[in-house]
Design a protein around this nucleic acid. Structure first.
Length: 424
RNA sequence: GGAGGAGUGGCCGAGUGGUCGAAGGCAACGGUCUUGAAAACCGUCGGACGCGAGUCCCGGGGGUUCGAAUCCCUCCUCCUCCGCCA
């Protein structure tokens, strides 16, 4: 959510920033609502004051029954007016809040201009694209041939866009989760969490999935709970409504979870293999930071995700998203794209975002800079460290062998307890 | 799911219709004293909105009333007992 006060102070600047993301958006209706609210609030507060003052007289003074009746009549009328105004004010506030919750975050000054994916900037590349003496296969064929991925069975059970892992495939997912969590908790100093996968509507609003993107989420009936699309949702909401101590920041959590996405509107897109599923597993990294440290932390966070790819010997590039391609809540974002030789494409495997105070304002997460000082909103950041299904894809495609087997990278061998997945 | 009890400021806890944003204690912060510290004493000490007078917030929402932390309804959370269950 936005700082309405700041927008009222500099509407042109705010509009310009918003339009870097999308030329059709602006704050004009928000500003109008905010100004009407200000006027109404002033009126309401004056009227309430009058009501309180007169009411005090009614309570304490001794007076004749006649005077009392008159005063009561007066108060009754005041009360009616207060209630009327209160109703108006509440309706207006609801409108204002809804409008505010539906506007995306402003891109940070560092975020490059651009309208779409085409305009993203490649920041750096790591590793060499592998070369093969044979025609490399894609992960779906490799996985099915090795008997470790079974999409047919998954479709029988759940329909399209689900995967069933078998044998060493199932172990590979588990090994990757353990490897990533160990790396982040031991080398990068994260606290490991295992969050709930079902969350309240309020939690979804807090991180920005709602109210605008309800059709993207799986929702349970009749309890109105939502299946998480990422562990970011439960983990960020851990501190909702709290005022944290400056000394405890930054707080860093690493959480493994399944992630559930309806993928509405992506019919016919990425239908093969593990690329785009209704359920996948991910290790997510989440930070709560002071505003002045968030930019540097964003770089470190990205490095933590990169460390996983490097340890797994997977070539990748870091792409900075342009303003037009940013996610709803992000002000700045690096995507990590892994090279998939079986498909000859770069594929997003991690997205590392700085949300600034956007989510914190929605979820009411603040910190006190020093004892006695006013609370300020924290900055929240998160990044995938990594998406596990897509990591499986990359391992299969990058480390495939001529005979159809797959080499397990050194760092993962203690977890897999085999050096390769052999072709049968 | 059924029956009962409870939700007040960072924490504990008073307050059961009017002057209560809320006693008291603890913690915290500033100061006096001290070589320093402790103790003692003095002061400050929730958040939001408004230029300000002032207004709003006592788990959330709604209602009764001239007036609600206090009464009613509803939802949520926690505790106890029963049921069910990994």
């Amino acid at each position: 959510m936005h700082d309405i006060k700041a927008i009222l102070e500099d509407p042109e600047g705010a509009n310009a920033a918003l339009q870097r993301r999308h030329p059709d958006l602006d704050f004009s209706s928000l500003i109008e609502l905010a100004e009407r609210r200000r006027a109404l609030t002033t009126q309401y507060s004056g009227l309430r004051h009058e009501q309180k003052t007169v009411s005090e007289g009614f309570a304490s003074k001794t007076m004749s029954d006649e005077d009392r009746a008159t005063l009561r009549g007066q108060l009754k009328e005041l009360s009616t007016r207060v209630k009327g105004l209160d109703g108006e004010l509440k309706a207006l506030e609801e409108q204002l809040e809804h409008a505010a919750l539906c506007l995306p975050n402003l891109p940070s000054a560092e975020t490059p201009d651009g309208a779409s994916e085409e305009d993203n900037k490649v920041v750096r590349t790591w590793g060499e694209k592998p070369t093969f003496d044979f025609e490399p296969s894609d992960h779906a064929s490799l996985g099915e041939d090795l008997g470790i991925l079974d999409f047919e069975a998954a479709a029988r059970v759940s329909g399209a866009r689900f995967a069933l892992y078998r044998g060493l495939g199932a172990r590979l997912e588990r090994a990757l989760a353990s490897f990533m969590l160990d790396l982040h908790t031991e080398a990068h100093d994260y606290e490991e969490l295992l969050p709930p996968y079902l969350v309240s509507r309020d939690a979804m609003v807090g991180t920005g999935q709602l109210p605008k993107f309800e059709e993207d989420a799986f929702r349970t009936e009749p309890d109105d709970l939502f299946l998480i699309s990422t562990a970011e949702v439960p983990v960020t909401n851990i501190h909702r409504g709290q005022i944290l101590e400056a000394g405890e920041l930054p707080i860093s959590y690493a959480a493994y979870s399944s992630c559930f996405r309806r993928e509405a509107g992506s019919y016919g897109k990425d239908t093969r293999g593990l690329t785009r599923l209704h359920q996948f597993q991910k290790v997510e990294l989440v930070h709560f930071a002071k505003p002045e440290e968030s930019a540097a932390l964003h770089e470190r966070l990205t490095g933590h995700a990169e460390a996983v790819l490097q340890a797994l010997e997977l070539p990748y590039r870091v792409v900075e998203l342009c303003a037009g391609d940013l996610g709803f809540a992000a002000q700045r974002c690096y995507d990590l794209e892994v090279w998939l030789p079986g498909q000859s494409i770069w594929r997003e495997i991690s997205s590392c975002s700085n949300f600034g105070p956007f989510q914190a304002r929605r979820a009411g997460i603040r910190y006190r800079p020093a004892p006695g000082e006013k609370p300020r909103f924290v900055h929240t950041l998160n990044g995938s460290g990594l998406a596990i299904g897509r990591t499986v894809m990359a391992i299969l495609e990058v480390h495939q062998l001529e005979d159809g087997g797959v080499r397990i990278p050194q760092a993962l061998q203690p977890y897999m307890r085999v050096e390769s997945i052999a072709a049968s």
